[in-house]
Measured scan of single mutants.
Amino acid sequence: EKIKSDFFELLSNHHLDSQSRWSKVKDKVESDPRYKAVDSSSMREDLFKQYIEKIAKNLDSE
């Protein structure tokens, strides 16, 4: 859970929106230790998708 929250924090530093693509974001964040803390690339992508869904819901509710 800490790894997930750290990863979300990392993503939040990059001002993403619901149109952001993992392939582009990954290049910007892959040197960060919070990125490396997530064991697998599929898990990183899953967390990215969860984060994008979360910010999309937040935008819808505003």
Rank of each mutant, 00 (worst) to 15 (best):
E53H: 06
K2D: 07
S18F: 08
W22V: 01
N13Q: 15
K57N: 13
E62W: 07
K24R: 11
L10V: 03
K49N: 11
Y51S: 03
V25K: 02
S23K: 10
H15L: 09
S41Y: 07
E45R: 07
F7H: 01
R34C: 02
D60F: 08
D39V: 11
Y35K: 01
L59W: 08
S12H: 11
D6R: 03
E1N: 15
D60L: 06
V29Y: 08
K36F: 06
S41I: 08
K24G: 11
E9F: 02
F48N: 02
K57F: 08
D46W: 08
D46Y: 14
S23A: 10
F7W: 01
A56N: 15
L59R: 12
E62Q: 15
N58A: 06
E62I: 08
A56K: 14
K2A: 05
I3R: 04
D39W: 06
S5M: 13
K26L: 05
F8Y: 09
Q50L: 09
S42H: 10
K24L: 13
H15K: 15
L10G: 01
S5V: 08
I55A: 09
S41K: 10
A56Q: 12
W22Q: 01
S20R: 03
K54G: 11
K28S: 11
W22A: 01
K4M: 07
Q50E: 15
D17M: 02
S41C: 11
S5F: 12
D39N: 14
E30Q: 14
R21I: 14
R34S: 02
Q19R: 10
F48D: 03
N58H: 07
K2N: 12
N13H: 15
D17N: 12
L47E: 02
A37V: 04
K36N: 08
R21D: 15
S61E: 11
V29L: 14
W22T: 01
I3A: 07
E45A: 07
E53A: 13
R44Y: 03
R44H: 04
A37T: 03
F7T: 01
K57D: 11
Q19H: 15
D27G: 15
S20N: 04
I52Y: 07
D39E: 13
E1R: 04
K28N: 10
S18R: 11
F8R: 02
D46L: 12
S61F: 14
D17V: 03
S20K: 03
F48T: 03
R44I: 02
S20W: 04
N58Y: 05
N13T: 12
S12Y: 04
D32Q: 00
L59E: 15
S31Y: 06
K24E: 15
